[in-house]
């Protein structure tokens, strides 16, 4: 399936049918909740149990915001799709919802917000959906307003699906220009499906706090099967770019190992694929001359 971003503008793509489909898929609910929990962790709010005022940018039907509420925080959600917000109302999202376009700026007073998350949304800014749209201007307006509304030292964690390296560099460069410090944390970099990139941005001068945490699975540790196996549904949420430059996919020095290959072969057999039998040659290391 082509990326949603090239099919239609977000307020059209996320129509009533899509909003419902999105929010009734238990698989999507689970994936979005996991990403949101990770984003909240990367926000690194003080561990004092005090509720904060947060933003959920591209909040959709409230799946990501639910994680914020469960952790006791107040939030303001921005979304451009009325249908997604309608589902959020049905689901009794606890945050306040705004029908708004992040590419027009957030329209908040300076320094009042304690942190912001955005889950699977910011890549939409890279597409010009109207003749008046200039992605660079929209990124500038978005990051500029995000920087201004955050309290000094506050963070924004944006999980997004960039289509290619140029896009992620463009997004990052506008974040830096707005004044943010930070970088990208990649979880499960070795898995094409579970791979998730988070822009972790800090508002204000660099400090001890700005050092980036490590991504999960960076050392070649594998994520659980559950994260990795995907079905067609996950395509609606995640866009997994097969053309990502291969060099980005760092492979663990030792490779994936015989055990992993055997497990995968078994999985494929169970799915009814015709898989060659396991022999002593399966996943055998090749000589260096290859």
């Amino acid at each position: 399936m082509p990326r949603p971003e090239i099919q239609a503008p977000p307020e059209i793509f996320y129509n009533e049918a899509e909003a419902r489909k999105y929010t009734t898929s238990s698989r999507i609910i689970e994936i979005q909740a996991k990403i949101s929990e990770r984003a909240l962790e990367l926000l690194a709010l003080p561990n004092d149990g005090v509720p904060r005022l947060l933003l959920d940018i591209g909040c959709g039907s409230g799946l990501s915001g639910e994680t914020l509420s469960e952790n006791g925080h107040h939030w303001i959600g921005y979304d451009i799709s009325q249908s997604m917000l309608d589902v959020a109302l049905e689901r009794e999202a606890e945050g306040d919802l705004l029908l708004a376009d992040m590419g027009q700026g957030l329209g908040l007073r300076p320094g009042v917000i304690d942190g912001a998350i955005s889950i699977s949304a910011v890549q939409w800014l890279c597409y010009a959906d109207k003749s008046s749209h200039e992605p660079r201007m929209r990124l500038k307006a978005f990051f500029g307003s995000l920087y201004r509304c955050l309290a000094r030292g506050a963070r924004a964690v944006l999980q997004l699906y960039a289509e290619n390296i140029n896009q992620s560099e463009m997004i990052m460069s506008y974040a830096m220009r707005a004044g943010f410090a930070g970088g990208v944390v990649v979880d499960w970099p070795h898995s094409s499906k579970a791979r998730k990139a988070y822009l972790v941005l800090t508002c204000g001068p660099p400090s001890m706090q700005t050092s980036l945490p490590k991504g999960r699975g960076e050392d070649g540790e594998m994520c659980s099967d559950d994260d990795e196996s995907g079905d067609d549904e996950s395509q609606t949420v995640g866009i997994y770019d097969r053309n990502r430059p291969r060099k980005k996919l760092k492979v663990n020095k030792k490779g994936k190992g015989r055990e992993w290959v055997l497990k995968k072969k078994e999985q494929m057999r169970r799915k009814g694929h015709d898989i060659p039998p396991d022999t002593k040659y399966t996943a055998r290391k090749r000589k260096a001359r290859f």
């Binding site: 005022l53 107040h74 303001i76 306040d96 919802l97 705004l98 027009q104 700026g105 957030l106 329209g107 908040l108 007073r109 009042v112 917000i113 307003s145 509304c149």
Partner: peptide, 21 residues
């Protein structure tokens, strides 16, 4: 919308210098 949110929102129409409250 709660008044918490109202208290944070400011009009960001181009050229507006004081969009609050």
């Amino acid at each position: 919308m709660r008044l918490l949110t109202h208290n944070m929102l400011s009009c960001n129409i181009k050229g507006v210098s004081n969009g609050f409250p």
